[in-house]
Design a protein around this nucleic acid. Structure first.
Length: 210
DNA sequence: CGGTCGATGATT
DNA sequence: ATCATCGACCGC
């Protein structure tokens, strides 16, 4: 029937749309957030929507390292909002920011670790009309909202996949964006991106060091 | 540099 | 239950 059935074949090898394209499994996510973050660059984010498939290639991410990381939402303990981020790996943690934008994270590490990777920018691959640079625009273009809170990326209509494209030849790192309140954690190089890629969101300004 | 509004944590 | 505060952002 719908595109759903056809696109579900992306979970199998030798997909016609993107070559050898396969859904990432639980083990991929069950690793430290920083490791997953780097490994996510170049992977595909796929959303099989009622209006057709939307696919983008990840070019910018940020790692959030759990309750000890003062920039992470889990640093203030378990709340209704952070329940999914404390949950098992391979699930989605979405939150609403500034009352208007959504941000999508993939939960990493063992259950209870409270670690995740924020998806910040995609290179459009298929079905994407609007900008996918920046976490809010990424979710808007991909059709991701709180409806996706807590869903499993290892089954269903939203997932991450590998294909036969080569991994990025180089990975750049910088401090994370918008976490100046996080003390020394604000300076840690936990933002990863493909250098000079046009879809990478440009940091507002280089941070001045005293 | 300010809009915009739900979630949060403190408080009743 | 209610309230004041504050954003893991965006567009000017």
């Amino acid at each position: 029937m719908s595109s759903h059935t056809a696109l579900s074949r992306l979970i199998t090898p030798a997909d016609p749309i993107q070559g050898d394209c396969r859904r990432l499994d639980r083990a991929f996510y069950d690793r430290p957030a920083e490791t997953v973050a780097r490994d996510l660059l170049g992977r595909l984010l796929v959303h099989d929507t009622s209006s057709g498939p939307r696919i983008g290639r990840i070019v910018e991410v940020e790692a959030y390292l759990g309750p000890g990381d003062l920039a992470a939402h889990t640093s203030r303990g378990r709340t209704a909002r952070t329940r999914a981020m404390f949950g098992p790996p391979g699930h989605v943690y979405v939150y609403l920011i500034y009352g208007m934008y959504h941000c999508m994270n993939v939960v990493t590490g063992p259950e209870g670790s409270g670690t995740a990777v924020l998806l910040r920018a995609l290179a459009p691959v298929q079905g994407l009309d609007a900008s996918t640079s920046g976490p809010g625009r990424l979710c808007r273009a991909m059709g991701i909202s709180l409806d996706h809170y807590g869903i499993d990326l290892c089954g269903g209509t939203l997932w991450l996949a590998r294909d036969d494209a080569p991994a990025p030849s180089e990975i750049a790192a910088s401090p994370r964006i918008g976490v100046d309140y996080a003390g020394e954690w604000a300076d840690k190089p936990l933002r990863f991106f493909v250098p000079d890629h046009p879809a990478v969101s440009r940091p507002p300004r280089a941070k001045k060091k005293g």
